[in-house]
Design a protein around this nucleic acid. Structure first.
Length: 423
RNA sequence: GGUCAGGUGGCUGAGUGGUCGAAAGCACUUCUUUGCUAAAGAAGCGUGCCCCAAAAGGGUACCGAGGGUUCGAAUCCCUCCCUGACCGCCA
């Protein structure tokens, strides 16, 4: 949520920055300000009347104690009460409208965020490693995995529906090995605390991190959408700290979690979703940071490096791109995507998205810290995938495939897989 | 799922219609004193919003949430949520 005070002070600047995003959210700014004006006028009047009522009610109390007749005063106060109710309803309506609009306005892109309308304008920030060469034509992960019996899409569809897969035998073990490897890496080397949160999450949390109110249809709802299957661990983990006032010394907070993620992915199909690339349920290890506002952009660099460490240890070629204003997620001020090279697929696959939300989520969830002067200030929140599993899986199979159809296990995973080759 | 008991400030806990944002204790902060790894005393110590150019200050709301009754609600009534105990069921 944007700061209403900031909107009041610099509405034109905010509109300009919102216009760089896709969508028409900038048009809401004037509407919000109109609501804000009505709201404040109503509140001021209401509070004046409430003060009057409080004062007179006390007088009635005193009068009754002394045995006087308070009927006339009571009637006056009753009239004030009616006006409070009427004015209060207007003020409440204005406030509700204002909040509703604010919840629909996305975060401001960072001032340095490259301006562009879609992903073709995302600059490549850096690359690591090189595309591996093969003395044979590399196969894609579906062919490799099917031949080795690592997963079964047909039976996934049979017991659920399209977009769900069953990992089998060594394939299931590889999935588990990757989860272990990722959690160990982040807890042992990057200073993260591990949590295992619920996967069924209530609506308040969805508002807190920004999935609601705009993206309700992207999620799997339960109990008439009173709850949702978590689309990412970002939601439960960040909301662990919702409505809290932390001590400054508590920051930064770094929490990691493995969870399955559930997404409807309506309207996605084709080559970009072949095989494991886009599933309705997938595993992910998430990294969440809650930091001091002065630190958040520096922390975004560190967070990205922590996610990159995954690919480096696994020896997978990748590149970092920065999202331009038109491609930036709803709640984010700045985002780096990490894209891993998948030789059989013949393209880069997004395995991680590392974002700084600045105070946008924190304001929605009233997550604050008390600074040295005793003021309550909003924390900054960040998160990044560290990393998503299926595409990592794809890149591993395709990068480490051998001519005989077997797959070499990268050194970092051997202790978890307890073998050097999947054949 | 059922029955009963509860939900008050960071914590414990008093308050059953009026001067209660709320006693007291603990914790915390500052100061004083004695001195030594502690003790005693004093003061301070919730959050949001509104008014004010700002600071100072003032106002208003908040005692699980939302409604209602009343001149006036932490206190009475209704609905919901949550917690605990016991029973049932169960990995």
């Amino acid at each position: 949520m944007l700061d209403i005070r900031q909107l009041r002070e610099a509405p034109e600047e905010i509109k300009t920055r919102l216009r760089n995003r896709n969508g028409e959210s900038w048009r809401l700014v004037d509407e919000v300000l109109a609501c804000d004006e009505r709201r404040r006028a109503g509140e001021t009047e209401k509070q004046t009347l409430q003060g009057e009522r409080n004062r007179l009610s006390k007088e009635i109390g005193v009068m009754k104690k002394e045995g006087g007749d308070s009927a006339a005063l009571e009637s006056t106060v009753r009239g004030i009460g009616e006006r409070i109710k009427a004015i209060g309803e207007e003020a409440d309506a204005a406030e509700a409208a204002q909040t509703n609009l604010l919840l629909q306005i996305p975060n401001l892109p960072h001032a340095d965020c490259p301006v562009g309308s879609d992903e073709t304008a995302n600059p490549v920030v850096r690359e690591w490693g090189e595309k591996p060469g093969f003395p044979f034509a590399p196969k894609d992960h579906l062919e490799i995995g099917t031949r080795l019996g690592l997963f079964d899409f047909e039976v996934g569809t049979k017991i659920s529906t399209g977009g769900f897969v069953v990992f089998t035998g060594p394939g299931a073990k590889l999935e588990r090995a990757l989860i272990q490897f990722l959690l160990d890496l982040h807890t042992e080397f990057h200073g993260y605390t591990e949590v295992a949160p619920p996967h069924i999450i209530n609506r308040d949390c969805m508002y807190g991190t920004g999935q609601l109110p705009k993206f309700e249809e992207d999620m799997y709802g339960l109990e008439e959408n009173a709850f949702f299957l978590a689309p990412t661990a970002e939601v439960p983990v960040t909301n662990l700290y919702r409505e809290r006032i932390l001590k400054e010394a508590d920051l930064p907070i770094k929490v990691t979690a493995y969870t399955p993620c559930f997404r409807r992915e309506a309207g996605s199909a084709g080559r970009e979703s072949r095989g494991l690339i886009r599933m309705h349920q997938f595993d992910k290890v998430e990294l969440v940071n809650i930091v001091h506002p002065d630190q958040s952009f520096a922390q975004l660099e560190k967070l990205t490096a922590e996610a990159e460490a995954v690919l480096q240890r696994l020896g997978l070629h990748y590149r970092i791109i920065e999202l331009c204003t038109g491609d930036l997620g709803f709640s984010s001020a700045k985002t780096y995507d990490i894209e891993v090279w998948a030789p059989g697929h013949g393209g880069y696959l997004e395995v991680s998205s590392c974002s700084n939300f600045v105070d946008y989520q924190a304001r929605r969830m009233r997550l604050r810290f008390k600074d040295a002067d005793g003021n309550n200030r909003f924390c900054h929140t960040l998160n990044g995938s560290g990393t998503a599993l299926p595409r990592l899986y794809v890149a591993l199979l395709e990068t480490y495939q051998q001519e005989d159809g077997s797959v070499k296990v990268p050194e970092a995973l051997v202790p978890y897989m307890k073998r050097e080759v999947i054949a």
